[in-house]
Simulated scan of single mutants.
Amino acid sequence: MSDAMNVAMPAAATGWSGGRLAVVVAACLGAAACAGAPQRAAEQGADDAARAEQVDALLADYRGRVPGASVLVLRDGRPVLRRGYGMAVLEDGVAAAPRTNYRLASVSKQFTAAAVLLLAQDGALDLDDPIKRWLPSLPKACDAITIRQILSHQSGLIDYEDVMSARFDADARQMRDADVLATLEGQDRTYFAPGGGYRYSNSGYALLALTVQKASGRSFAAFLRERIFAPLDMRDTVAYERGVSQVAHRAYGYSFEDGRWRRTDQSPTSAVLGDGGIYSSIDDLAKWDAALYDGRLLSDASRRLAFAAHTPTDVAEVGYGYGWRITGETLWHSGETIGFRNVIVRWPQRRLTVAMLSNRNDPEPYRTALKIGALYLP
């Protein structure tokens, strides 16, 4: 007779009391579970090692003395892969690492949106406020534009990059958020009636940074540091201002031109903070990701707003929340600027996140991140 059959028999048939039998059964089951745990852990470790080799293969072009990448995979809040590939600084041979800080470009928008949501939680502003309540110098065409519409790219604002002055350059005089406002003051028109369509808008997020500044009485960079980065122990993440702040463990951006890698770290718009001026690492993004699962930073209501698809975009099956794109079960955002290509993809129901930051102009990493995620999905 098997053990399983013996356990299934009534206590009277064994001659044992029900209590004694329960203790013996519990002990046997506990011992079996304990004996199986190391085996399961070993199997999981072997599986993760095999997956890591597959990730290495996907990142083969980033290895060696070339502009590199840092890659993070979080499963159930634990980093199961955390690696750097290639170089953070080509000229000095500084290797990319998990603590390397890259300019996030438009991945920054989720932090700008979070700052606005924090102020809404504080009661310092309302998402339905007209943007001109905070930035009254905007022209009449902007009268009906609300903060809520800007967050989800439904404002119709003119793209500042298309109308900016030629006097801005990457070195002597970069454009800043205040310069975006000054530029838009001369554009008494919108692409469509506010709320009447979708058009991705860097202009809007620059205006949101200025709104955060007005509503909080703090600079945008200081507000991010005090209300988001410091509370989450994101020690090296910074909204970078040349001559004001520093970027620790900094990666510099590069572009492949005429058969070689050339440093292309800054553009005339690299100093605009609200739409893309934050530097961070995969180590700090792990802390950010953890905070998106609970109320330590944003309330449940604020997170629901951020992660809801408020509008379809110009890409089929992709909606836009507040600083996040929504595709099926994923929340994600990419970032592209001169010399940097980045992405973060979250599968929140499966407690899986992939972040890939790179200091090169090409290729875009979104598809690579999806391939990495597929390796770890159950």
Rank of each mutant, 00 (worst) to 15 (best):
S17A: 09
L21F: 04
C34P: 00
A49T: 14
R83Q: 15
A42H: 12
A31T: 12
P67G: 05
V66M: 08
A41G: 00
G45C: 11
A88H: 09
A50H: 13
G18M: 08
L29C: 09
D92W: 09
S70V: 06
E91G: 05
V24Q: 11
A52R: 11
D61V: 07
A27T: 09
A46V: 12
L90S: 02
A26K: 01
G19P: 00
V24P: 00
V73G: 02
A60E: 14
R83M: 04
R63D: 03
G84L: 05
G30R: 00
Y62G: 02
A60P: 00
G18C: 02
G68E: 14
V80T: 12
D61G: 07
A22D: 03
V25P: 00
W16L: 12
A50C: 07
G45M: 09
G30W: 03
G45Q: 14
C34G: 08
E43D: 13
V89D: 13
P67W: 05
V66H: 08
W16G: 00
V25C: 04
D76V: 00
P38G: 07
D56P: 11
Y85R: 10
D56C: 08
V25S: 01
G77C: 08
G19D: 10
Y85A: 08
D92M: 08
D92K: 13
D47E: 14
V24K: 11
G30I: 04
R51A: 13
A26I: 06
A69K: 08
R65Y: 10
V66K: 07
L90Y: 01
M87T: 04
S17L: 06
D76F: 02
G77Q: 06
C34H: 03
P67S: 07
A31C: 09
V55Y: 03
E53M: 12
D92T: 13
G36C: 12
R63E: 13
G19N: 06
